[in-house]
């Protein structure tokens, strides 16, 4: 099929960007969206232009590297990642707008590549269980009810892609942060640090310049891994609980 692409081009964080238009032909519907961009880039290189920079690695929808706003929707029309979005969901002659994640906490690095390191700092503020290597008890010492294990898994499935932030009108990282808080706080292994974890991560989230949550719900709609909106309620509950319990930091 034949497509018109309008893609955000921006050389680096300091220079202003703009949408550029490209015509592309001979797109197979079995291609992934990224393979379509690969073809565009091959053509750009031979034409002596700079190819479009975008993050990607696994191309299986699991590493969370890829991410772009396609026609105003994070990761495009399907509930999946850009690398797992196939061209059969578009039709011949379409005009497709491709933009980077837009959020103050995710500055653009180049073209469709943004800096998501703020996520790593949120995890560093408590998104772990403090168990040095070797200090672990026998795995069966603490059975975990299947429901808890499944709930933990459902939230642990977050791939840190940032679509939630990109989709949120407030550039809020609530869904991402909530996913990790719920994952660890529902498990007995996470219990000892239950309060410090949620307090620390929310504080970091604010410090990283993410917006607040107005319960808009766009994040959960965009999330390729189906992290439920109620995760945010659960995190709020954990946060208020921790605040009341009184071990407040700073």
């Amino acid at each position: 099929m034949k497509l018109t692409l309008r893609i955000w081009r921006q050389h680096d964080a300091d220079t202003a960007g703009a949408m550029a238009t490209y015509e592309i032909d001979g797109i197979s519907e079995d291609m992934s969206f990224l393979e379509m961009l690969d073809q565009l880039n091959e053509e750009l290189i031979l034409a002596g232009d700079d190819p479009v920079a975008f993050d990607h690695d696994c191309r299986e929808g699991i590493c969370g590297a890829c991410g772009m706003v396609i026609n105003g929707q994070a990761h495009g029309p399907e509930r999946t990642t850009a690398c797992q979005l196939h061209m059969r969901h578009f039709s011949d002659g379409d005009t497709i707008d491709v933009e980077p994640w837009r959020a103050a906490a995710f500055p653009v690095v180049r073209d469709l590549v943004v800096d998501r390191s703020a996520f790593d700092r949120v995890i560093g503020a408590g998104g772990y269980v403090s168990v040095p290597t070797g200090a672990a008890p026998e795995a069966h010492a603490t059975p975990v009810p299947k429901e808890a294990a499944d709930l933990a898994f459902e939230h642990a499935a977050c791939i840190g892609c940032g679509a939630c932030v990109a989709a949120c009108p407030n550039g809020s990282a609530m869904l991402f942060t909530a996913a990790k808080v719920v994952h660890l706080n529902v498990l007995p292994q996470g219990a000892p640090e239950r309060e410090s974890r949620v307090l620390g991560m929310v504080e970091a989230m604010d410090d990283q310049g993410f917006g607040g949550c107005t319960n808009t719900g766009e994040c959960a709609t965009a999330c390729p891994k189906g992290i439920p909106l109620t995760a945010i309620a659960a995190m709020n509950r954990e946060y208020l609980r921790a605040s009341v319990k009184g071990n407040r930091r700073r």
């Binding site: 309008r6 707008d97 933009e99 837009r102 103050a104 906490a105 009108p169 917006g211």
Partner: peptide
Amino acid sequence: RDLAARPDKYRRT
């Protein structure tokens, strides 16, 4: 704060 956290809008929304 929320408006500041999302300075620029998308071309198509």
